[in-house]
Design a protein around this nucleic acid. Structure first.
Lengths: 221, 221
DNA sequence: CGTGGCGCGTGACTTCGTCACAGACATGCT
DNA sequence: AGCATGTCTGTGACGAAGTCACGCGCCACG
């Protein structure tokens, strides 16, 4: 049973697959499941655990008092909640929210182990540092995006990126929070995309009709 | 001569003042000066050095193609360019610009030493991790600020924070880039603040006249 | 079948960014 | 002093985006 944990780690977190870490993980880590919609971490909370996601996705976002949201990034299998790591190690409060977007499985490592392994395992150090560093850069890139690019370009980008088989199965509301905008604004932009023949709209679904046309919107018009 | 470096470190970076690190720093680190306006690091560059600032301030910001800017944070004596550290350790490109705002003095540590000390010194590890973690949280907080608070609240906040003896010796242009806004917009808001008797305006200077009135603007109106 | 909630469309209004231009002031030069 | 040049600021006009409010269609569920 416990042996399974390090097997999963080896598969999804290959850089952690050193013999000593595998033994440590088997001995001290646990697995958890979080149902879709469950909170992983709340703003301002002190974090006690570091989750390594093995299945499902977690959405990390900030939220205004009035309920507006901006998605910072998503955590996918093989990644970890670096904000948690970051506030564990920097002794800061968690500055955002993290909720399970789908059912999520994760390996959780206790705060004390996270810190101990930082001292004892080079592989663990590299793993945690690399995650934090890449996320940091990603969030800054996101900030540039939000501040400088126009919404129609970001929307086109988003649609092309989120489409599966030419379809984006999301509500305007969800798209808006991912883009850091408001539902009404997204609806309007989508409508004009439809009028230009680039997409067709249905309830909770956007179907791409002209991906080249959408790509043409990516630059600043 | 070389002994001076570790003395400065001991004073400004007390968490680094272990005997072994002091010896390492004396042996391998160097000091540099950067004149006001000089570039510390450019967007997309691979970083080769980690600067520990001992005097002056560095402004770290992102910039759009058209030249609009948003200040992410400032590095003051006793702090370090964590973005540099972050991309050193995560092998990512530097996602922003860092420019000396005043004349700056710094101790620079070579990439190879940064990495080596991560493995050998617990004090160094804690220092670097703490810096990165706190900055990460700070940038996310900044993002919330930019996305959710209105400009008049942010402006009031900024003025109260940046004032020395009730005066902010900056141009509207500088204030605008710090706030991530545009000069004309800031000028307008300052004008209405002046009309309401909260400040008086002169060339390159804002004088606070009613700090309680300004504080009243901090919430969302 | 209602009926209540959710997703969407739309108009009116505000805030903010962009662009353009003009006047005020500073600095340095002749 | 007089002038030129560059910086800083004020302002109007406009477009892009966020806010608020309301109505309508669709779907699920009793």
């Amino acid at each position: 049973m416990a042996a399974r944990i390090s097997e999963v780690v080896t598969e999804l977190f290959p850089t952690l697959a050193t013999p000593s870490l595998r033994a440590e993980v088997d001995a001290r880590a646990q697995t958890v499941r979080v149902p879709a919609g469950g909170f992983i971490c709340m703003e301002g909370e002190a974090c006690q655990m570091l989750p390594l996601v093995t299945a499902g996705t977690v959405r990390v976002f900030v939220q205004s008092d009035e309920g507006r949201e901006v998605t910072l990034y998503r955590i996918r299998p093989g990644e970890s909640c670096v904000l948690t790591a970051s506030c564990l190690l920097g002794e800061a409060d968690f500055p955002a929210f993290a909720v399970a977007e789908t059912d999520v499985r994760a390996i959780v490592v206790r705060l004390s182990d996270v810190q101990a392994w930082m001292d004892t395992s080079e592989a663990w150090r590299g793993f945690v540092l690399g995650l934090i560093a890449r996320r940091f850069a990603e969030v800054i890139g996101r900030m540039e995006d939000l501040m400088f690019r126009r919404l129609d370009a970001r929307l086109a980008d988003y649609l092309l990126d989120a489409a599966i088989d030419g379809e984006v199965a999301r509500t305007h509301e969800q798209i808006a929070t991912d883009l850091g905008s408001a539902r009404a604004v997204v609806s309007r932009h989508l409508k004009t995309l439809e009028q230009n023949g680039l997409v067709t709209l249905d309830r909770s679904r956007v179907t791409l009709r002209d991906t080249t046309g959408l790509r043409a919107l990516l630059q600043r018009p």
